[in-house]
Design a protein around this nucleic acid. Sequence first.
DNA 1: TTATTTTTTGCAACAATATTGCATTTTCGT
DNA 2: ACGAAAATGCAATATTGTTGCAAAAAATAA
Lengths: 137, 137
Amino acid sequence: MDQLMDILKRNQLSVTEGRRKILELFLKSDGALAHADVEKKIDAGFDRVTVYRTLQTFVEKGIIHNIPTTDNSILYALCKDNCEAGHHHDNHVHFICDVCDKTICLEHVAIPEVKLPKGYQQRQADLVISGVCDDCR
Amino acid sequence: MDQLMDILKRNQLSVTEGRRKILELFLKSDGALAHADVEKKIDAGFDRVTVYRTLQTFVEKGIIHNIPTTDNSILYALCKDNCEAGHHHDNHVHFICDVCDKTICLEHVAIPEVKLPKGYQQRQADLVISGVCDDCR
DNA sequence: TTATTTTTTGCAACAATATTGCATTTTCGT
DNA sequence: ACGAAAATGCAATATTGTTGCAAAAAATAA
């Protein structure tokens, strides 16, 4: 299980217990995670600040990316292709259930091209679909 | 200018100065507004709590809706068609500029249908495109 | 390995944002 | 105008995110 270390090394990050644990959490959880989720699901007692900084670092390095939400929370999800820092062309489609609040990533769905007004340059596109998931019907 | 009163009445809301002012603000500003924007742009000194509650009420009534963002802020925008409370089929496309942070609503762009997994029911779809706007190039 | 440098962490304090209860005020229907 | 219902303001509280700095851990060099 050196996948964790690989990812961290590749991104020139020191390998620490906190980073390993958080990264591991993302690797084994299919959905997206909010800051609060990360804090809860990690048994070890890491400081809130550490979690904030770790997530921030991961985003900067392009290990994870954040997903738009309509409530004021930030959801983070793993970048499957571990894209280069700075330019993530992750065109993700996410489904948020109104009932159970779970967010899942629809990986196989592609976002069609959208024609933007003149002069607008697209970097990233996120499609967020909300409704009721299969479990909550 | 009884458009304001009309909207409020239609949604069974008492007509108060705060609600009129806030609704007016949305009507005359083309883009989306955050809570902070609303507070700033209203000259009258309304309590923060009132603004929170008003925005919440407007969302519940379907007068405004909120736009997904990747930072942890909530953006509100007017529902053009003043849809029924509860079911807003507002499939909005929004563009967020990475530089100036402005959010604009691309009204003429439609979100194509997306095939969801079995049992999933779509209520709303939001496409958020980020990049650089024409002004910031 | 040990010593030195660099990075990360935890703590504490702080700042910003959002929520709740309750008394007062305003609006609405009669 | 009057009484009932709804909205507001205030204070207190909760939640969430940030910053500075000293201690601890990890990386680098010898």
